[in-house]
Design a protein around this nucleic acid. Sequence first.
DNA 1: GTGAAAGCGCTAACAG
DNA 2: CTGTTAGCGCTTTCAC
Lengths: 324, 324
Amino acid sequence: MAVTIKDVAEKVGVSVTTVSRVLNNRGYLSESLKQKVNDAMEELNYHPSEVARSLLRKKSNIIGLILPDISHPFFGEVTKHIEAYAYEQGYKLMLCNSLHHKKKEKEYIDLLRASRVDGIIMGSHTMSVNDYKSINLPLVSLDRQISKSIPFIASDNYQGGVLATRLLLRKKCRSIAYLSGNLRLNLLAKQRHDAFLEQVRGQDVEYTVRQTDLNGFKYKDYEKLVSSLFEERPELDGVFASSDMLALQVLKQCRRLGRAVPGQVKVIGYDGIAALDAEDLTTIVQPIKKMGELAVQYLLQQIAGEPVPLETILPVRLSEKGTT
Amino acid sequence: MAVTIKDVAEKVGVSVTTVSRVLNNRGYLSESLKQKVNDAMEELNYHPSEVARSLLRKKSNIIGLILPDISHPFFGEVTKHIEAYAYEQGYKLMLCNSLHHKKKEKEYIDLLRASRVDGIIMGSHTMSVNDYKSINLPLVSLDRQISKSIPFIASDNYQGGVLATRLLLRKKCRSIAYLSGNLRLNLLAKQRHDAFLEQVRGQDVEYTVRQTDLNGFKYKDYEKLVSSLFEERPELDGVFASSDMLALQVLKQCRRLGRAVPGQVKVIGYDGIAALDAEDLTTIVQPIKKMGELAVQYLLQQIAGEPVPLETILPVRLSEKGTT
DNA sequence: GTGAAAGCGCTAACAG
DNA sequence: CTGTTAGCGCTTTCAC
């Protein structure tokens, strides 16, 4: 990238200001001059440096996205929509996987700040509330409420929990398990758990709750969790898995143990991941696209100094397919 | 980000040069001075601007990653490993989804160039060879050979095709279909197709080849493709799907049509996506982690001016599970 | 050991 | 309509 605005200016025999002007289409320049400058830029294969511009404008047009793990299909899908919307609005995306590691998340936040990103979407959070408040950059959190002052986007986890549990009850399940990621992660997803408990209590059913440990998305851990569940509760006839990925593990165990689905065991997942469309899995569908787009929109509004709602809760819906 | 190196310098009562020196740990400074400067930086919550540094050093420590679609689990998984390795090496990742759109891909390349990324990993390509050659930036392509002069990383697609086809033949399939994304996309994945044909020809079996249209990963399209296949070829007893996602659609149709798997129809996929571990799907496993890491490594080597191999082909392996 | 000055590539006053 | 100048935040000669 040796070629700078100065090279273009020299080639045409004008000042850099003039070149800058045609670049930004400011002020009045004769058509012929514009033409000459544009030709020179083309010829030299000149591309203005966003780095220099960022320095000057104090604005990078980059947003940071921090996730636990992009390879998890839910995050892959939401990221796709975040990217698409950000791109439309002229923003680039810097992708950061925290892997639920506090240290890595912290380092990434420092990196993003150093890179002068204009804002950050948090799809992961492992630090303390005050750490986030001191980031001092426009922020939106996805699926988690970090503090009252940081806007978040989520879907209606409570309602999702109600819908899923009621379906299993309606289908006459008598022994139901709720399976989830770690509840201490302090996600809004915990409300699914709360809803489950409220629906199930006082009903004439057995129930149990199982959660993974804190290490994030290890499919092998999921597997162990599920297999021990079936060992301890052989009479199980309903499972509410708080993610589609977990639900797949349940289906796998059922195949392995020869439990018919939905005949002997009914299974409902959560998320409504598009890539799992072929699965025939009953699930609670989150409006993933909308969530991603709103996250970007509210972030850009903050960047523009406009107010944004602090709490955004979008509706979910039940998609009943072959596993119930 | 109002606080700059100048603020720190003023607070301590030294020149910006001195602050810069402790920042970069250059030259000899007294311990007490270092201490004072560090304290001041902490107190002011100062974070040096990577933007200013990039401008000066002509190096951003950012690499661009262009993919068709991050929500496709294969790309999600490879991206996870690319990110992890890049992070270790001190590089950040700018994520770009082309959605197989030529225009978007071109715009993204210009954006990346303007952002002065140090190199680009191409996991998508829709433009002409010369367009890529003129990018004039360190480049590595993933799973595609753009030109002889651009290094690529791939797994052994031909061998994968052989392994998959032979397995179906060994299992006594008499009517076999090969299913793939669009073969005109000019991917190395086409070699799976070539291998299929070579293995199947001259054998006493029927075979057919089906491909999706160019529009990328539309799961609904996959579904149509598969359902029309079974309509036209009711006697089908073996399917080699060139991605795990396609294989899932095949399994879905089999469930729908009441075809037993593997009893009546045997199905083998391709990719070995970790997120689909629960699927019990026989598949050809690509070394996704290694592919991602090598892509980054070879890119960084180019950035450092070191030579890299132009062709890297990694071995695949057969993972036989319940669908064959 | 430390500072002054120049410059990375660009834009924005301010003149003319 | 176009050019001169200053400066964004930082590093790096080159002096002292």
